[in-house]
């Protein structure tokens, strides 16, 4: 198994987060975290403490996987939290990473889902290229 330092993983990940958020102004924050709850990289329009959210992201993604498995519904694609003031989406990047994306825009869920999907695919591609 190829081992990357958190710094290396952050270098691969950060450009994808910046590019996505440059393109979509409705997205307020994006994080990539390890499946066991460590922050890898993040980008946000307004600085906020995100360490706890990194751990919560791994817990929620894992609960999503567990519920999906319990119901025999294939693989969990997203976990979506709908709030009064926006949406949060969690989705797998690969076996060891989870993407968390936040929007506070009314009606921003569609953009959040499509942008987080393409962003996660880009991060995954960068990791595969490095490992192969």
């Amino acid at each position: 198994m190829t081992k990357l330092s958190v710094e290396q993983a952050a270098e691969i990940t950060r450009p994808c987060l910046l590019e996505t958020m440059d393109r979509y102004s409705a997205i307020d924050a994006m994080l990539v975290v390890s499946v066991d709850g460590h922050m890898i990289a993040n980008h946000m329009r307004e600085e906020k403490p995100m360490r706890r959210l990194a751990s919560m992201g791994s817990s929620l993604m894992s609960l999503g996987d567990t519920v999906t498995e319990e119901l025999n519904m294939g693989a969990c694609k997203n976990v979506v939290i709908e709030n009064d003031l926006g949406h949060v989406v969690f989705r797998h990047v690969n076996k060891i990473l989870v993407l968390v994306a936040v929007t506070q825009s009314p009606g921003g869920l569609g953009i959040l889902l499509s942008a987080s999907k393409s962003c996660a695919e880009n991060v995954a591609k960068n990791f595969s290229a490095l490992i192969s």
């Binding site: 390890s34 817990s59 894992s62 567990t66 319990e70 060891i96």
Partner: peptide, 12 residues
């Protein structure tokens, strides 16, 4: 048992 185990990426 309902479990939420994931691969450990750190010293664990």
């Amino acid at each position: 048992v309902v479990q939420t185990d994931v691969v450990a990426t750190d010293e664990v």
